[in-house]
Design a protein around this nucleic acid. Structure first.
Lengths: 148, 148
DNA sequence: ATTATACCTACTAAAGCAATAGGTATTTGA
DNA sequence: TCAAATACCTATTGCTTTAGTAGGTATAAT
């Protein structure tokens, strides 16, 4: 059970767009790929998914690029990751289903559905803004830690 | 992000052992593989992992087999799945880490650590007994649904 | 001694993931 | 109007993981 590189790249790229949300400039894939050290061509594919999900807006042509379609505090980690991964907790079609349908159904209901819900509600409570805030917090050397 | 077939097989097999926990008989891999419709040789590998994790006890030789090492209500879905999958929320080593260490750290702390915790606490609350109870519930056609 | 089992290591095939390649379409600006 | 910069598209390659197979050895019961 893992978050793919694509998922990480997507989150990182969206965070970067979020950090530049206010100045209203379009950010290019090339720029992000260089800043992050990610392959440009691969990152393009990630943006294709983000766009399809309506999370970003694109401008073609010279001086074009991407920006967020919504405010950073209204885009969640769940939004980003579901745009990129096929599903959060994915089904493998199990052989068990055929011979032990009751058990298979029980596992689905008691384990996998609940897991799916837990993952969803966890990730839905995390916004791009939360990520940025943490980055800023790390930048301050004179933070609350001093008082402990 | 998916639960592998191995994970499902493991949960199903452990549930089967749980269902036969009281009669104290050793259950063979062959028996489970036939009951569930799973490849025997593959299921053996699953049991190897379950044994390594101390979740089952084995008896070699003729009339041998497996049984649970603890009571069904004290073995959780988390126990079983972590015994089989490498980790619940697995890290991919990201390129982002090198060029954007603060962002990478923020993502880890704000997203992935929390996700890991959420998955863990969800699965830790589910026992084999819970799964069996649901199977039994499905068997009763005269259940509480009638009163709704 | 035979049979039934756990247990072990190596191998194969298929699927999914990460990354690359080589374009076309569109917009800006010189 | 042309060149540059960009998004956007499809196909391909190589790698890693997963699912499943093969062929054994060790051990215990009958």
């Amino acid at each position: 059970m893992r978050i793919s590189a694509k998922g990480r790249y997507g989150l990182a790229a969206m965070s970067y767009l979020a950090a530049n949300y206010k100045n209203g400039m379009a950010i290019t894939v090339l720029h992000i790929s260089e800043t992050m050290g990610i392959s440009k061509i691969y990152l393009e594919q990630v943006f294709s998914l983000l766009k399809r999900a309506g999370l970003v807006i694109s401008i073609k042509g010279s001086q074009g690029g991407y920006f967020l379609n919504r405010e950073p505090n209204s885009i969640t980690a769940y939004d980003v990751l579901t745009a990129i991964e096929i599903a959060m907790v994915e089904k493998t079609d199990s052989t068990v289903e055929e011979k032990q349908p009751l058990l298979d159904k029980a596992m689905q209901e008691i384990v996998f559905s609940r897991l799916d819900d837990a993952v969803k509600s966890c990730l839905e409570e995390i916004t791009l803004e939360d990520i940025l805030n943490n980055v800023e917090k790390q930048k301050e050397p004179d933070n609350l830690m001093y008082f402990i």
